[in-house]
């Protein structure tokens, strides 16, 4: 533990400072602080999930530009699945299923067919837009609202419990578990060691007897489930409707967050919360008339923030060595 703190000194100090500031604000203005924090977390949930999709993909050596499309189709499938079947469960399952299918599509085209990963992702996004805008039917309603619970005990912790565990939906909880689970998996388990190896130096993994192709296929496909959950969260949890193009670039924000988080799940989650908080703060300031900027321009804040973050982060963090390159076995 001491060694871990020593190694991550900067992150630990920053984390403590942020937490202290958050509590100071919380105790000075409980209602506003809580509503801002909750807004930030709600905003961050799909970003966290999508950033994890990006992390798993790139740690395995596959760039996933198609997260945006996975998100959009899953939101679509989740909403209309639930609306037509009258069952939330069916909606969630069809959303997650679509995430998996599109993940599998991306994996197959880039890993098996060695299609350019960027082009494959962009194609996936355009296909997603085409499908969802053609089959979109206005005027549908969800059969019910997604259930929200409070976790006994945890939810009574001031601030942290109130934001993360009070009146929370299943997907937000899964997001929390996934961040810690994938972080642990990536750095502490055999799966993680191998995943990092195939993304960093695939031929070394190959000569050590690891099946690079299969592992990339499985990782990228299964990560699609998380994008599916994020989509379901968008259309069924944080709102209860589907709109054309409702993913609104979140898949790309998630990639920026992944880079900002240096391809590490915990840092990426922190970065997503930062994005959420900035957005929440901006709309709060707007509502309080502290700043007077047209709402259309305030709406572009996350995108501007992404450009700034990328310009700052690029060059300071190092991407997995083999990301973007198909693995080719000679003579097979």
């Amino acid at each position: 533990m001491a060694a871990w703190i020593q190694r991550n000194k900067f992150s630990v100090i920053l984390g403590v400072v942020v937490l202290v500031l958050a509590y100071i604000y919380y105790f000075s203005d409980k209602t506003t602080a809580l509503s801002m924090y909750r807004y930030a977390w709600t905003y961050a949930v799909p970003l966290v999930l999508c950033a994890l999709v990006g992390v798993i993909g790139e740690r395995s050596g596959v760039v996933n530009i198609g997260i945006e499309g996975q998100l959009l189709v899953s939101a679509f499938a989740g909403f209309f699945g639930a609306a037509y079947s009258g069952s939330l469960i069916v909606g969630i399952l069809s959303g997650v299923g679509c995430g998996l299918i599109l993940g599998g599509f991306l994996a197959w085209t880039t890993v098996k067919w060695r299609m350019d990963q960027i082009i494959a992702g962009v194609v996936l996004n355009i296909v997603a837009t085409g499908i969802t805008s053609f089959y979109y039917k206005p005027g549908q309603l969800l059969p019910a609202l997604m259930p929200h619970w409070s976790i006994p005990g945890l939810s009574s912790i001031p601030l942290i419990g109130e934001v993360f565990f009070k009146g929370t939906g299943v997907i937000a909880l899964i997001a929390i578990i996934a961040v810690f689970g994938i972080h642990f998996g990536l750095f502490k388990t055999t799966w993680g060691l191998r995943t990092r190896a195939i993304g960093e130096y695939p031929s070394a993994a190959d000569t050590a007897g690891i099946n690079v192709i299969t592992m990339r296929l499985v990782n990228v496909t299964l990560a699609g489930a998380l994008a599916g959950l994020a989509g379901v969260f968008l259309s069924m949890d944080s709102t209860s409707s589907f709109e054309r193009g409702m993913s609104a670039g979140r898949g790309f924000l998630a990639l920026a967050i992944m880079i900002f988080g240096a391809w590490r799940p915990l840092r990426a989650a922190a970065a997503a919360l930062f994005f959420g908080f900035v957005t929440a703060a901006a709309s709060q300031l707007q509502a309080d008339q502290v700043i007077n900027v047209p709402p259309q321009l305030v709406g572009t804040l996350p995108y501007v923030l992404t450009l700034v973050v990328l310009a700052v982060a690029a060059g300071r963090v190092r991407a997995p060595g083999a990301v973007g390159q198909p693995f080719v076995k000679e003579g097979k």
Binding site: T190, L193, Y201, G209, G321
Partner: peptide
């Protein structure tokens, strides 16, 4: 050389025939 540059010697040596304790490397 077929070594993963960002990993330690021990990690490189165990890659592909990892030993685990309760699921942890």
């Amino acid at each position: 050389f077929q070594l993963v540059p960002v990993m330690t010697v021990a990690e490189n040596v165990m890659l592909g025939h990892e030993t685990t304790k309760g699921g942890v490397l």
